[in-house]
Amino acid sequence: MIQTNGATIIRVAEQDDMAGLARLELAADAQLQEALGGVLLPPPQPSGDGSELFILVAGRPPVGFARVDELDGQAHLEQLSVHPLAGRRGVGRALVEAAANESRLRGFTAMTLCTFADIAFNAPFYVSCGFEEYRCPGPRLAALRVHEVELGLDALGRRISMRREI
């Protein structure tokens, strides 16, 4: 699958892309850490470890990526990262839309995610992409939220689950 958003090409990640995704996520997380008042975040989970349904990247070399897993029979946007130097150019939105389209092609009817509720480039951004707060998650999504609490994410700011029909 290859989709374009203006000059940005969204494509399925290739093996050569995987090594750079952790660095890309760390760069994106620096912006999140700043928004959270400089607190340290848990280290990124490895992308491309085989547990994901798919990973999409924007650009070559990638300036952003979306990792999608399956939870409770729904596509789950596990990670969306855009390098700060590529921010505010529609890359994140293009990745969300491409992830939703790819999930739909794979037979999913909804996509979920977990995010910080009060950070502009988190929940408010996802609302603008059609997501709504999801108060009745299935057992695996609920377990993921418990894991996030155990990691200390909820101590950094209010976290919510969100869902979008696709």
Rank of each mutant, 00 (worst) to 15 (best):
D118K: 00
D118F: 00
I9Y: 03
G38Q: 05
E70L: 02
A28F: 04
A86R: 02
A86G: 06
R23N: 09
R104N: 12
A30Q: 14
H76A: 06
E150V: 11
L21S: 11
A7G: 11
D118Q: 13
G50A: 09
H76E: 10
L151V: 05
L105E: 11
M162T: 13
R159S: 04
G64N: 03
A94S: 14
A58G: 12
L144Q: 15
L156W: 01
R93M: 12
I9L: 14
E14W: 01
L40N: 08
I2Q: 14
H76P: 07
L144E: 15
V82L: 08
L113M: 05
R135Y: 00
A94W: 06
T8L: 12
I10C: 07
A28S: 15
T8H: 07
P42A: 07
T109Y: 08
Q3P: 00
R145F: 13
V149P: 00
P42M: 05
R67S: 05
R93K: 14
H76S: 14
E70K: 02
E148V: 04
L41D: 09
L24K: 15
A142P: 02
V91K: 10
A117W: 05
A99M: 04
P124C: 01
P43H: 04
L113N: 09
Q15E: 15
G38C: 07
A98W: 01
M162R: 08
G59S: 07
T112P: 13
P139R: 07
L26V: 06
A66T: 02
V96G: 10
E52V: 08
E150C: 07
A123P: 04
I55D: 01
